[in-house]
Amino acid sequence: MAQTPKGLLSAQNVASVRGERTLFSALNLQVNSGEIWQIQGPNGAGKSSLLRILAGLLPPQSGSVCFQGEAIEHNRSAYHQELLFLGHKAGVKPELTAIENLDFFASVQGHVQGRGLQEPPYELLANVGLVGLEDIPAQRLSAGQQRRIALARLWLSNAKLWILDEPFTSLDVHGIELLHERFQWQVARGGAIVMTSHQALNHLPIALQTLVLEYQH
């Protein structure tokens, strides 16, 4: 995977306003290949809003976001080809089983070009600890198990950039460990991760960059 000297993602002078309140302004961020960024801050500081701006879901009040040097609104589809965004709600359809959900994600992820999952990828399910639950609709699984379905997309994806909103929510110790391993894999191959998390990520074997958002009154 080609490494660009400019880095993957950069935000220049970004501001966000919700209602009458300015969440943050004049924010700069540069994410390079092989980096993990943790956005920290109290509730309501605008962590999720920042992630949504970076993903191109929310237009910033001012400023711009560039992916590999190009403004994301100008090459939206190339950017989204290389992006995996998991928000609070990750788009797991509660009526469908884990396999069916993953099948959908596999067939829409640009790289797989039309091929869904060829056969039930037990390896993948094993990775996220869902073996034996593959035929049960997601709504009958526990919150942590549903979260694992969403996170299984990390094993399907070879996007350069992952943007993850609270990926560790409702995961058990084993799940967190699995996720750490996968983060390592992403970083080792030159990808990057931007995420929010309330947990201290001490156990993460990779150096962590942090950005702290203050609550603005």
Binding site: S77, L83, F85, A90, G91, G110
Partner: peptide, 18 residues
Amino acid sequence: RDDFRDGALEQMLLLPVA
């Protein structure tokens, strides 16, 4: 409506096609 609630809608906006 359901897509909006479970987040599938925002994933749809992030697909790499128009």
